[in-house]
Amino acid sequence: MTVPVAIALEVNGERVDAHVLPRLNLADFLREHLQLTGTHVGCEHGVCGACTVRMNGEIVRACLVLAVQASAKCVQTIEGLSDSGEIADLQAAFRERNALQCGYCTPAMLMAAQDLLGRQPEPSREEIREHLSGNYCRCTGYQAIVDAVEATARARKARPS
């Protein structure tokens, strides 16, 4: 027998209470219960990276986290990062360099790139590729994505803080 479980978490700064079946993963919870559809679902077994979100400040695969495991946690999705302006420059760099085509991988790519820039303000191209190696893009060939992340790192460094 499986019964819904009560969960309470914070999503993009707002408290969310819900009852979910144990089998529901965090990606589907965000998309279908909260209509936060920026978190994409690709492979559903942790390979493509399209569902990357932040949980308690760390990037995770939302398809490999059960919604019940996210209870009492603080989740941030691409909607949260975008609305707060945290990644406005990174988004602009992606746009300027055509670092996306169909856009399916883009929200998660931005999540992973921002995670890297938060830890390593001056990543080499190799480090960028390594950090994004768990995020598939089937359109761009990655070159423009690496360019955009590198350009954002340089611009942030040059910006007076």
Partner: peptide, 9 residues
């Protein structure tokens, strides 16, 4: 071992 998002969990 895998990628950063996997290593976080």
């Amino acid at each position: 071992v895998a990628h950063p998002a996997i290593r976080n969990r």
